[in-house]
Design a binder for these strands. Structure first.
Lengths: 338, 338
DNA sequence: ATACTCTATGCAATCGATTGCATGACGATA
DNA sequence: TATCGTCATGCAATCGATTGCATAGAGTAT
């Protein structure tokens, strides 16, 4: 019934050598210490017996696990699975496995998840959950854990991060709307304590100014959710009469705008144009299809994994912030101003 | 810098007892072996020193890890994150952690992922990837791994599963279309090697028959994807002229139908009604909003976790197949027949 | 007082691999 | 031939907890 796993001991016995020799053969770093002949014999036998090292035992001794923790704020938000793909692909190539933890946007839960992962000896962490001043980052440092942020950066700049050029992304959206004749553009911003919320807002203000437009209307949502977007949109529309276009900081917020506009009987895009950010899966299926700033999800994940692996290999690797360039996916939610 | 973790040894020393005593105190099962007084002292000290057992070391000895592997065919399909939520919540309450592995619908990848997880000593597996005759199930058994299927069942019936009553779900859809006056209804089916594809097809045929309708048109998609749905829909429309409604086996297939209908200039729902299955996130946002069979995602995940925990606690627990009842979410993709 | 049980705790092996140190064999050099 | 160095391999400690067995001491029965 239970086929007992073949251990290093079995291989050693079969090859007539000591377990430590087998260990050395199978570890590329120590492979050179063993004679060619023995090494080949051991390798052949290991293959034949289907041996593979027990990661638990070896992790106990080496304090490493070939495992990386990934903290996701909300796995149901279709942006993150795409980023995950990139992370998993790159980690996989290097023989690492990602362990995903979902935090439901809850700081306490995130801390607990990180502690659990650290106890399991993850070799590094990728945080997609970071707020601008995030205690999680200090927690990682106190664990001595190589860490990379993805999608969201931290103010401190003391951690590597792979993000999108938020200002450039928003500029694309404003540019596009301006070209369509819009002159009164509002912004439904993201949470101020998250880097993307802050940077996109700043980018919006800068872009508006660059086009010499009227002092802009801005309403900040308290979270990246449809409901918060709806509320912020209501606030925005209450402030100023003639907003003809809304730049939302995120696709979910844009969906909230859809809802609020509909509630007020304002047609999108005929009366009000809307843009999103992230170009999440199915954004092209919405009604109307959402014009959105497209970010290179997969690449972002891959780069984050790459940085992390470098940091694991060399803990003194320099801190880097990689900013990727977004594009604009133009769809049906934006139209020429009447 | 590196605060060295407090080990069982430190606690023992502080309490003036042997490490084994500490271990006994902290393990509820052996707690009774230790005198009240010592137990309390040890417990207090463990708390004060912030001790928690190293799961790697204890896993090595006990061959258990308080960890469960979850195989997901496609994490980017918004159905699965919802199921995951239920799984994680229930596992979490019991002190277990889910380790998620994404297989991208690839059998080989799934096998490799399972092997990796097994090597990490997962205590059980939840498979959302099962095909009707899945070698993965045998693999789990050969590992002696408690296993539960979720969302998809296996033909053999030798493994517990939590699924939706597919036939009942399809019956709801057909019922609804019938009530709207449709008499010529086609089916875009799912892959025949997956239980849902097979059961929904059977359910469709049964429901059509029950309403005494014309011999039905059916086209099977080779995978649960938009592209496959589009192709199957094309095939379906090629077969019969006057299909006024399509029951798709899955929301992605329904989206494929949207595309094919649009390509042919057929308006949905004015000329052809479409129903989906799963009621995935954002289905209400599609154009038109998709009428879909809603499954209790969260409950499904929770029940699967519950069954698995029971099986872990008692490996001889009986095999169960839990069938949950779906509802119909009626939206804009279905309309009265002209 | 002796034998006997029982309880609480310590001892040491164990899980499966890794790794610093020791040692033996062999060849080279003087 | 003696000495030394090098290379290949074995030995045993270690990672941190768990657990079967041993034992000291308290308590009870005879």
């Amino acid at each position: 019934m239970h086929k007992k796993r073949t251990g290093i001991h079995d291989v050693a016995e079969a090859a007539g050598v000591h377990p430590s020799t087998v260990s050395r053969v199978l570890n590329p770093r120590t492979r050179g210490l063993v004679s060619q002949a023995v090494a080949e014999r051991v390798e052949a036998l290991a293959g034949k017996l289907g041996y593979s090292a027990d990661p638990v035992a070896s992790g106990l001794r080496t304090r490493r696990s070939a495992t990386v923790g990934v903290l996701i704020p909300d796995i149901a938000n279709p942006v993150f699975p795409l980023i995950l793909r990139g992370i998993e692909a790159t980690l996989g190539e290097a023989g690492y496995t990602a362990i995903i933890a979902n935090t439901d946007n809850d700081t306490a839960r995130a801390g607990a998840a990180l502690a659990r992962l650290a106890a399991r000896r993850i070799d590094g962490a990728i945080l997609a959950t970071a707020t601008r001043r995030d205690p999680l980052i200090a927690q990682c440092r106190s664990f001595g854990l190589p860490t990379v942020l993805v999608n969201r950066a931290a103010d401190s700049g003391k951690v590597s991060a792979v993000i999108v050029d938020d200002r450039a992304g928003i500029a694309l959206a404003v540019e596009h709307l301006f070209a369509l004749g819009h002159r009164s553009i509002g912004h439904v911003g993201g949470p101020g304590n998250i880097s993307t919320g802050q940077a996109r807002r700043a980018g919006f203000l800068a872009a508006i100014k660059a086009h010499g437009l009227a002092p802009p209307a801005v309403a900040m949502a308290e979270s990246y959710s449809i409901a918060a977007g709806e509320r912020a949109c209501a606030q925005l529309l209450g402030m100023k009469r003639h907003i003809s276009a809304i730049v939302a900081a995120n696709d979910l917020l844009a969906l909230g705008c859809y809802d609020e506009l509909k509630r007020r009987g304002l047609a999108c895009p005929r009366e009000v144009s809307v843009t999103g950010f992230n170009d999440m899966a199915f954004a092209d299926r919405f009604d109307p299809p959402l014009t959105s700033v497209r970010i290179p999800h997969r690449l972002m994940g891959a780069e984050a994994a790459r940085l992390l692996l470098a940091q694991i290999a060399n803990p003194r690797a320099p801190i880097q912030e990689i900013k990727l360039l977004p594009e604009l996916a133009v769809r049906g939610s934006t139209a020429r101003r009447k």
